[in-house]
Design a binder for these strands. Structure first.
Length: 346
DNA sequence: AAAGCGGGGCC
DNA sequence: GGCCCAGCTTT
């Protein structure tokens, strides 16, 4: 099977952005771009990169400038400790390394303002060091590709993802690979509305298959997504369908759906048929279960819905207070219901 | 392990 | 208007 790294690299060759710091292997410029791009989008950082490289074409020029001038040039970018550390690091390179940017991971990592991410990025891109980067994009791509639910903002999560990222690294061209997976996260595997429809990894993406793309990566700090199990009874009699309108105090207020039996975990049909709700609805009539359909996980903002539809045909329509009998057209339906109907062309 | 650090984009 | 994004340093 084609390695994931090859798919990412061919995607990068097609779709990767042409950016000024990708046209150089000057360690100063790579380092400068990485510091600017910490917590900053490319669209915002680009003009600052151009401004800095014009005013300070090399690290000696940066080191020679007063700190105030560096801060002024940084104005508007935020996180001003980045600018102070940038300037201090430039001066260290002049005083401790004779003006030559250090070439080992340990030395680069020890510069002020350089953490694991920036050291790996600089050393892989400039020196072909086999160091996998781990930034927000990489967390997201790996969490989805392997459907990993371990929170990324915990010690165990960071260690797990660091090991996985290192395993995935294409060590024959680490710099190119690192840029590819980060651009892939920024452009294709985006936090919101990822482009799964034209994703070259769609067939290999475990989160896409599981319906968990929207909840990957998991972060501890965020409100927890609650799992709910919705068992719908799609009851028909002739051309008529049982519909129920949702009330307040929950999702989809005022929308219509099929009669619903919610359980606290996955339930098979026999378990449902034994519930009081089911017997109240269908206990008195004759009915036949035609088929059961399990939908992919349906992601809402704070809930992950696991829905199963049981299609039931009745000899006579049951009468039940909270249920209406209707044709489906004209009723506002949750997307989950609409997807079920579309998928099975009903 | 957790807090502090800006600014911008999106719904 | 509120939520999300995110790497490094400090505590």
């Amino acid at each position: 099977m084609e390695p994931v790294s090859d798919i990412l690299l061919s995607w990068f060759a097609r779709e990767g952005r042409d950016l000024p710091w990708r046209r150089t292997r000057d360690p100063y410029r790579i380092w400068l771009s990485e510091v600017i791009l910490q917590q900053t989008r490319v669209a915002q950082g680009l003009e600052y990169y151009l401004r800095f490289t014009e005013r300070f074409p090399d690290i000696a020029a940066l080191a020679a400038a007063p700190e105030d001038e560096v801060l002024k040039l940084w104005q508007g970018l935020g996180y001003y400790s980045r600018a102070r550390n940038l300037h201090a690091a430039a001066r260290q390179v002049m005083s401790r390394f004779g003006g030559v940017f250090p070439a080992t991971y340990g030395e680069v990592r020890a510069l002020p303002g350089v953490g694991d991410y920036t050291a790996a990025a600089v050393c892989s891109i400039v020196y072909d060091a086999p160091c996998a980067v781990l930034d927000g994009n990489v967390y997201r791509v790996l969490a989805r590709l392997f459907d990993i639910g371990i929170p990324i903002d915990t010690t165990a999560g960071k260690r797990t993802f660091a090991e996985l990222a290192q395993l995935q690294l294409d060590t024959s061209r680490p710099g190119l690979y690192n840029q590819a997976i980060m651009d892939f996260g920024a452009l294709q595997c985006t936090p919101a509305q990822p482009r799964c429809g034209d994703c070259p990894l769609a067939g290999r993406c475990l989160a896409l298959a599981a319906g968990t793309v929207g909840v990957r990566p998991v972060k501890q700090g965020r409100a927890k997504v609650r799992d709910r199990w919705f068992n719908y009874l799609h009851v028909t009699c002739g051309g008529q369908t049982l519909l129920h309108r949702r009330g307040g105090g929950d999702i989809w207020q005022g929308l219509y759906e099929f009669p619903l039996i919610e359980t606290d975990k996955a339930a098979d049909f026999a378990e449902l048929a034994a519930t009081a709700a089911f017997r109240e609805l269908l206990g008195n009539g004759r009915w036949h279960l035609r088929r059961s359909v399990t939908m992919p996980g349906h992601q809402l903002s704070h809930q992950l819905l696991h829905a199963v539809f049981h299609r039931i045909e009745c000899d006579a329509m049951p009468a039940f207070p909270s249920v209406e009998t209707a044709a489906l057209g004209g009723y506002a339906l949750p997307r989950l219901i609409d997807r079920y109907l579309t998928k099975y062309q009903m």
